[in-house]
Write a protein that binds this DNA or RNA. Sequence first.
DNA 1: CCATATCGTCAGTGTTGCTGACGATCGGAA
DNA 2: TTCCGATCGTCAGCAACACTGACGATATGG
Lengths: 151, 151
Amino acid sequence: MEGDGRLAAPVSGPLATSVCWLLGDAARELTQELERVLRKDDLRWRDYGVLVVLEAAGPLSQQEIGRRLSVDRSTMVHVIDVLEERGLVARARDAADRRAYSIRLTDSGRALLVDVLHPATEAVQERVLGGLAAEDRMHLNRVLAQLAAGR
Amino acid sequence: MEGDGRLAAPVSGPLATSVCWLLGDAARELTQELERVLRKDDLRWRDYGVLVVLEAAGPLSQQEIGRRLSVDRSTMVHVIDVLEERGLVARARDAADRRAYSIRLTDSGRALLVDVLHPATEAVQERVLGGLAAEDRMHLNRVLAQLAAGR
DNA sequence: CCATATCGTCAGTGTTGCTGACGATCGGAA
DNA sequence: TTCCGATCGTCAGCAACACTGACGATATGG
């Protein structure tokens, strides 16, 4: 990922009209802000992703989590290690497939998500997108969702 | 950056409604595709950025380029080294500030941009955003531009 | 003329994610 | 059942990467 702390100056000229750069910039800013907030709880974007996925989908194998976040399975090992050490998730052998773990959110993990993480990221989102009209935000959401669906 | 080749499965549930994840996913996909295309010319997203910035703004110092792309000045040294070796940009001492270089696009660099890179990235953008109605694309562009401006 | 700051450079460093192998386990075919 | 290929999690090694902190050269303000 990028260095934080540093601000990206908006690019002028023809670039400003390219969806490509605009999208990249917006995503980078949002991600940077998010990382900054999450760092207070010693978490990364990636860790937050794991918790969110588990909250949404219930217990999953390490590999399945990685698949949904574009994280390599070998990388997931350590990510889960850390999360488990902190008591946010728990490993249990999957009864149906004993090669795999069944990773689940602990109460502690769910509490962190609900009480701290979700509010914090909500705030960031609010701040970054705050300048948009409600109508535009809904539209943005709809268009992006359509983009994600059409893959 | 992320590993390429790997596909990100769309996340289901509450996440799908969060602009945050949607934006991140869209940007990641676009970036990955772009990197894949640029690799044919042995270039990275970052290199392309340098060329585009120079095309848009004219000669700049290394540090100024880095500032606009969120790239550290020490990293820029090597980026420019490679681009210069390939004859795409040229270093000249800035007459007004002899500490700094004045990096400019060569004819060769401009030609590559116009003949190869721009068409290629256009195509990617077309493919990724192709599923959207023209009206939605314009709206997306407008909203993102507004977002970039309001910083 | 001196102090401080900036530009580009470079060696060293720490982090990061991937590659490729491993044992264990699963699933299907013979 | 037995066998074979594929998959799960793990780990050591590796390669890429960007950042840190220092340096000489230069600029700028007192």
